[in-house]
Protein backbone atom coordinates (compact mmCIF):
# COMPACT_ATOMS: atom_id res chain seq x y z
CA UNK A 1 0.00 0.00 0.00
CA UNK A 2 1.42 3.43 -0.86
CA UNK A 3 1.06 6.59 1.14
CA UNK A 4 -1.07 8.29 -1.52
CA UNK A 5 -3.67 5.55 -1.32
CA UNK A 6 -3.74 5.94 2.44
CA UNK A 7 -4.21 9.68 2.30
CA UNK A 8 -7.16 9.43 -0.08
CA UNK A 9 -8.97 6.82 1.97
CA UNK A 10 -7.77 7.45 5.50
CA UNK A 11 -8.05 11.18 6.05
CA UNK A 12 -10.63 13.83 5.47
CA UNK A 13 -9.45 17.35 4.73
CA UNK A 14 -11.47 20.09 6.34
CA UNK A 15 -9.74 23.39 5.60
CA UNK A 16 -9.20 25.65 8.65
CA UNK A 17 -10.19 22.96 11.12
CA UNK A 18 -7.15 20.89 10.28
CA UNK A 19 -4.61 21.37 13.06
CA UNK A 20 -1.87 19.23 11.59
CA UNK A 21 -1.40 18.51 7.91
CA UNK A 22 1.50 16.51 6.55
CA UNK A 23 2.06 15.72 2.88
CA UNK A 24 4.69 13.28 1.65
CA UNK A 25 6.97 14.14 4.58
CA UNK A 26 10.52 12.91 4.17
CA UNK A 27 13.62 13.11 6.35
CA UNK A 28 16.84 11.53 5.23
CA UNK A 29 20.23 11.24 6.86
CA UNK A 30 22.66 10.42 4.07
CA UNK A 31 21.14 7.47 2.28
CA UNK A 32 18.97 6.48 5.25
CA UNK A 33 15.35 7.63 5.16
CA UNK A 34 14.14 7.99 8.76
CA UNK A 35 10.79 9.27 7.48
CA UNK A 36 9.97 8.08 3.99
CA UNK A 37 6.96 9.86 2.56
CA UNK A 38 4.29 10.16 5.24
CA UNK A 39 0.91 11.83 4.70
CA UNK A 40 -1.79 12.45 7.30
CA UNK A 41 -4.04 15.13 8.79
CA UNK A 42 -5.24 15.72 12.34
CA UNK A 43 -8.47 17.64 12.85
CA UNK A 44 -9.14 20.17 15.60
CA UNK A 45 -10.08 18.44 18.85
CA UNK A 46 -8.97 15.04 17.65
CA UNK A 47 -6.63 12.69 19.49
CA UNK A 48 -4.36 10.96 17.03
CA UNK A 49 -1.91 8.22 17.94
CA UNK A 50 1.26 7.43 16.00
CA UNK A 51 2.17 3.81 16.59
CA UNK A 52 5.17 1.84 15.46
CA UNK A 53 8.25 -0.08 16.56
CA UNK A 54 11.37 1.66 17.91
CA UNK A 55 13.25 3.42 15.13
CA UNK A 56 10.21 3.44 12.84
CA UNK A 57 10.29 7.24 12.50
CA UNK A 58 7.65 8.27 15.06
CA UNK A 59 9.85 10.61 17.05
CA UNK A 60 11.49 12.08 13.96
CA UNK A 61 8.03 12.87 12.57
CA UNK A 62 6.84 14.43 15.81
CA UNK A 63 10.05 16.47 16.18
CA UNK A 64 9.64 17.84 12.67
CA UNK A 65 6.11 18.94 13.60
CA UNK A 66 7.36 20.49 16.87
CA UNK A 67 9.91 22.54 14.91
CA UNK A 68 12.98 20.78 16.33
CA UNK A 69 14.06 19.18 13.07
CA UNK A 70 13.98 20.40 9.49
CA UNK A 71 12.37 18.11 6.95
CA UNK A 72 14.19 17.04 3.81
CA UNK A 73 11.10 17.34 1.59
CA UNK A 74 7.34 17.36 1.61
CA UNK A 75 5.06 19.86 3.31
CA UNK A 76 3.99 20.25 6.91
CA UNK A 77 1.52 22.62 8.52
CA UNK A 78 0.91 22.84 12.27
CA UNK A 79 -1.83 25.22 13.44
CA UNK A 80 -1.61 26.76 9.99
CA UNK A 81 2.14 27.47 10.27
CA UNK A 82 5.15 25.77 8.72
CA UNK A 83 6.90 24.38 11.83
CA UNK A 84 10.31 25.21 10.33
CA UNK A 85 9.38 28.90 10.67
CA UNK A 86 7.23 28.84 13.81
CA UNK A 87 7.69 31.93 16.00
CA UNK A 88 6.91 32.85 19.59
CA UNK A 89 3.13 33.21 19.01
CA UNK A 90 3.00 29.80 17.39
CA UNK A 91 4.94 28.19 20.23
CA UNK A 92 2.57 29.72 22.80
CA UNK A 93 -0.27 27.68 21.26
CA UNK A 94 1.65 24.37 21.51
CA UNK A 95 2.33 22.04 24.39
CA UNK A 96 5.29 19.70 23.99
CA UNK A 97 6.03 16.66 26.12
CA UNK A 98 9.35 15.32 24.86
CA UNK A 99 10.73 11.90 25.54
CA UNK A 100 12.23 12.01 28.99
CA UNK A 101 15.15 14.37 29.54
CA UNK A 102 17.90 14.48 32.15
CA UNK A 103 17.71 17.98 33.52
CA UNK A 104 19.46 18.65 36.81
CA UNK A 105 16.15 19.37 38.55
CA UNK A 106 17.43 21.81 41.17
CA UNK A 107 14.00 23.42 41.47
CA UNK A 108 10.80 22.26 43.11
CA UNK A 109 7.79 21.11 41.10
CA UNK A 110 5.95 24.28 42.00
CA UNK A 111 8.89 26.58 41.21
CA UNK A 112 9.37 25.13 37.77
CA UNK A 113 5.68 25.14 36.87
CA UNK A 114 5.20 28.70 38.16
CA UNK A 115 8.15 29.80 36.07
CA UNK A 116 6.91 28.08 32.91
CA UNK A 117 3.38 29.42 33.47
CA UNK A 118 4.79 32.94 33.15
CA UNK A 119 6.12 32.16 29.67
CA UNK A 120 2.58 31.73 28.28
CA UNK A 121 -0.09 34.38 27.64
CA UNK A 122 -2.99 32.42 29.12
CA UNK A 123 -1.65 29.69 31.41
CA UNK A 124 -3.56 27.22 33.53
CA UNK A 125 -3.58 27.52 37.31
CA UNK A 126 -0.33 26.03 38.65
CA UNK A 127 -1.87 24.30 41.68
CA UNK A 128 -4.67 22.82 39.56
CA UNK A 129 -2.18 21.38 37.09
CA UNK A 130 -0.06 19.95 39.92
CA UNK A 131 -3.20 18.35 41.34
CA UNK A 132 -4.23 17.03 37.92
CA UNK A 133 -0.95 15.14 37.55
CA UNK A 134 -1.22 13.89 41.14
CA UNK A 135 1.81 15.68 42.56
CA UNK A 136 0.16 17.93 45.16
CA UNK A 137 2.06 16.25 47.97
CA UNK A 138 5.33 16.66 46.07
CA UNK A 139 4.75 20.29 45.02
CA UNK A 140 7.57 21.60 47.21
CA UNK A 141 9.98 18.73 46.48
CA UNK A 142 13.02 19.30 44.27
CA UNK A 143 12.48 17.60 40.93
CA UNK A 144 15.79 15.71 41.20
CA UNK A 145 14.44 13.88 44.28
CA UNK A 146 11.37 12.56 42.44
CA UNK A 147 11.04 9.04 41.03
CA UNK A 148 11.19 8.49 37.27
CA UNK A 149 7.42 8.24 36.97
CA UNK A 150 6.93 11.38 39.05
CA UNK A 151 9.41 13.31 36.91
CA UNK A 152 7.48 12.18 33.86
CA UNK A 153 4.34 13.66 35.39
CA UNK A 154 6.19 16.95 35.79
CA UNK A 155 7.01 16.76 32.05
CA UNK A 156 3.33 16.30 31.28
CA UNK A 157 2.39 19.16 33.62
CA UNK A 158 4.90 21.44 31.86
CA UNK A 159 3.39 20.44 28.53
CA UNK A 160 -0.13 21.48 29.49
CA UNK A 161 0.59 24.50 31.73
CA UNK A 162 0.31 26.93 28.78
CA UNK A 163 -3.24 25.78 27.88
CA UNK A 164 -2.14 24.50 24.46
CA UNK A 165 -4.47 24.13 21.48
CA UNK A 166 -2.29 21.30 20.24
CA UNK A 167 -0.47 18.94 22.60
CA UNK A 168 2.37 16.66 21.54
CA UNK A 169 2.86 13.65 23.80
CA UNK A 170 5.92 11.56 22.94
CA UNK A 171 5.69 8.32 24.93
CA UNK A 172 4.19 10.16 27.90
CA UNK A 173 3.55 7.25 30.28
CA UNK A 174 6.87 5.42 30.11
CA UNK A 175 7.76 4.50 33.68
CA UNK A 176 4.24 4.94 35.06
CA UNK A 177 2.71 2.30 37.29
CA UNK A 178 -0.75 1.05 36.19
CA UNK A 179 -2.55 3.34 38.61
CA UNK A 180 -0.62 6.41 37.48
CA UNK A 181 -1.37 5.46 33.88
CA UNK A 182 -5.14 5.37 34.57
CA UNK A 183 -4.89 8.77 36.27
CA UNK A 184 -2.98 10.10 33.30
CA UNK A 185 -5.69 8.83 30.95
CA UNK A 186 -8.27 10.76 32.97
CA UNK A 187 -6.15 13.90 32.62
CA UNK A 188 -5.92 13.44 28.85
CA UNK A 189 -9.68 12.84 28.62
CA UNK A 190 -10.33 16.10 30.46
CA UNK A 191 -7.99 17.92 28.04
CA UNK A 192 -9.92 16.32 25.17
CA UNK A 193 -13.21 17.52 26.63
CA UNK A 194 -11.80 21.05 26.63
CA UNK A 195 -11.13 20.67 22.91
CA UNK A 196 -7.35 20.15 22.94
CA UNK A 197 -5.97 18.47 19.84
CA UNK A 198 -3.52 15.74 20.81
CA UNK A 199 -0.80 13.93 18.90
CA UNK A 200 0.35 10.92 20.89
CA UNK A 201 3.07 8.36 20.39
CA UNK A 202 3.08 5.35 22.66
CA UNK A 203 4.23 1.76 22.94
CA UNK A 204 1.16 0.89 24.99
CA UNK A 205 -1.51 -0.14 22.52
CA UNK A 206 -4.19 -0.20 25.22
CA UNK A 207 -3.34 3.43 25.88
CA UNK A 208 -3.77 4.31 22.23
CA UNK A 209 -7.07 2.41 22.14
CA UNK A 210 -8.30 4.15 25.30
CA UNK A 211 -7.38 7.68 24.31
CA UNK A 212 -7.25 8.17 20.59
CA UNK A 213 -9.89 8.65 17.94
CA UNK A 214 -7.63 7.63 15.10
CA UNK A 215 -4.20 6.11 14.76
CA UNK A 216 -1.49 5.77 12.16
CA UNK A 217 0.95 2.87 12.15
CA UNK A 218 4.52 3.68 11.05
CA UNK A 219 7.11 1.09 10.13
CA UNK A 220 10.39 1.68 8.30
CA UNK A 221 9.58 5.39 7.92
CA UNK A 222 6.34 4.65 6.06
CA UNK A 223 2.74 4.94 7.14
CA UNK A 224 1.47 1.38 6.70
CA UNK A 225 -2.05 2.00 7.96
CA UNK A 226 -4.22 4.83 9.21
CA UNK A 227 -7.80 5.00 10.38
CA UNK A 228 -10.21 4.95 13.28
CA UNK A 229 -9.01 2.77 16.13
CA UNK A 230 -11.70 0.13 15.49
CA UNK A 231 -11.08 0.14 11.74
CA UNK A 232 -7.33 -0.45 11.73
CA UNK A 233 -5.94 -3.53 10.05
CA UNK A 234 -7.47 -5.81 7.48
CA UNK A 235 -11.17 -6.62 7.97
CA UNK A 236 -10.47 -10.31 8.67
CA UNK A 237 -7.91 -9.37 11.33
CA UNK A 238 -10.73 -7.92 13.40
CA UNK A 239 -13.02 -10.99 13.25
CA UNK A 240 -13.77 -12.22 16.77
CA UNK A 241 -12.80 -15.67 17.97
CA UNK A 242 -15.01 -18.02 20.01
CA UNK A 243 -12.96 -20.36 22.16
CA UNK A 244 -14.07 -23.26 24.35
CA UNK A 245 -12.74 -26.49 25.74
CA UNK A 246 -14.11 -30.05 25.67
CA UNK A 247 -12.66 -33.53 26.16
CA UNK A 248 -10.82 -33.23 22.80
CA UNK A 249 -9.00 -30.06 23.82
CA UNK A 250 -9.37 -26.36 23.03
CA UNK A 251 -11.38 -25.22 20.02
CA UNK A 252 -11.33 -21.87 18.26
CA UNK A 253 -13.71 -20.54 15.68
CA UNK A 254 -13.30 -17.20 13.90
CA UNK A 255 -16.73 -15.82 13.16
CA UNK A 256 -18.59 -12.63 12.40
CA UNK A 257 -21.54 -14.01 14.43
CA UNK A 258 -20.07 -15.08 17.76
CA UNK A 259 -23.45 -15.08 19.51
CA UNK A 260 -24.83 -17.49 16.92
CA UNK A 261 -21.85 -19.83 17.35
CA UNK A 262 -22.27 -19.79 21.12
CA UNK A 263 -26.03 -20.46 20.78
CA UNK A 264 -25.46 -23.43 18.44
CA UNK A 265 -22.73 -24.73 20.73
CA UNK A 266 -25.02 -24.54 23.73
CA UNK A 267 -27.81 -26.26 21.82
CA UNK A 268 -25.58 -29.13 20.63
CA UNK A 269 -23.88 -29.67 23.99
CA UNK A 270 -27.06 -29.28 25.96
CA UNK A 271 -24.90 -27.80 28.68
CA UNK A 272 -22.68 -24.82 29.47
CA UNK A 273 -19.45 -25.13 27.36
CA UNK A 274 -16.25 -25.13 29.43
CA UNK A 275 -13.84 -22.19 29.35
CA UNK A 276 -16.05 -20.25 26.97
CA UNK A 277 -14.55 -16.98 25.66
CA UNK A 278 -15.49 -14.57 22.91
CA UNK A 279 -12.33 -12.68 22.01
CA UNK A 280 -12.22 -9.58 19.88
CA UNK A 281 -8.68 -9.00 18.60
CA UNK A 282 -7.16 -6.12 20.61
CA UNK A 283 -5.48 -3.18 18.95
CA UNK A 284 -2.25 -4.83 20.02
CA UNK A 285 -3.07 -8.03 18.08
CA UNK A 286 -4.00 -6.02 15.00
CA UNK A 287 -0.94 -3.81 15.31
CA UNK A 288 1.46 -6.74 15.68
CA UNK A 289 -0.08 -8.39 12.64
CA UNK A 290 0.27 -5.19 10.59
CA UNK A 291 3.90 -4.67 11.55
CA UNK A 292 4.92 -8.29 10.99
CA UNK A 293 3.13 -8.33 7.63
CA UNK A 294 5.04 -5.18 6.65
CA UNK A 295 8.35 -6.62 7.82
CA UNK A 296 7.72 -9.79 5.78
CA UNK A 297 7.06 -7.85 2.57
CA UNK A 298 10.18 -5.70 3.02
CA UNK A 299 12.23 -8.82 3.79
CA UNK A 300 10.96 -10.38 0.56
CA UNK A 301 11.76 -7.18 -1.35
CA UNK A 302 15.28 -6.89 0.03
CA UNK A 303 15.94 -10.56 -0.67
CA UNK A 304 14.72 -10.06 -4.25
CA UNK A 305 17.03 -7.07 -4.58
CA UNK A 306 19.99 -9.05 -3.36
CA UNK A 307 19.19 -11.90 -5.77
CA UNK A 308 18.80 -9.71 -8.87
Amino acid sequence: MTSTQISSTGTQSAGGDTHVSVQDLRKTYGSFAAVDGITFDIERGETFALLGPNGAGKSTTIEILEGYRDRTSGTASVLGVDPQHGGIDWKSRLGIVLQSTGESGNVSVQEQLSHFARLYPNPRDVDEVIAAVGLTEKAKTRIKSLSGGQRRRVDVALGVIGRPELLFLDEPTTGFDPEARREFWELIRSLKREGTTILLTTHYLDEAAQLSDRAGVIAGGKLIDIGKIDELGAADARIPVVRWTDQNGTHEERTLEPAGVVARLYASLGAEPQGLEVIRPSLEDIYLELVSAYEKTTDVKSTEKELS
Binding site: E66, G67, Y68, I88, D89, K91, S92, L94, I96, L98, T101, G102, E103, S104, F116, L119, Y120, P121, L158, G162
Partner: peptide
Amino acid sequence: AMERSDGTLKRLGGTPLP
Protein backbone atom coordinates in the same frame (compact mmCIF):
# COMPACT_ATOMS: atom_id res chain seq x y z
CA ALA B 1 26.74 23.36 27.41
CA MET B 2 25.17 21.26 30.19
CA GLU B 3 21.74 22.74 29.49
CA ARG B 4 22.14 21.91 25.84
CA SER B 5 23.04 18.31 26.53
CA ASP B 6 20.60 17.53 29.38
CA GLY B 7 17.52 18.75 27.50
CA THR B 8 16.92 22.05 29.33
CA LEU B 9 17.44 24.07 26.16
CA LYS B 10 15.34 21.71 24.10
CA ARG B 11 12.46 22.13 26.51
CA LEU B 12 12.86 25.91 26.60
CA GLY B 13 13.07 25.97 22.81
CA GLY B 14 9.59 24.48 22.68
CA THR B 15 8.12 27.26 24.83
CA PRO B 16 7.42 30.85 23.81
CA LEU B 17 10.47 32.06 25.76
CA PRO B 18 12.31 34.61 23.55
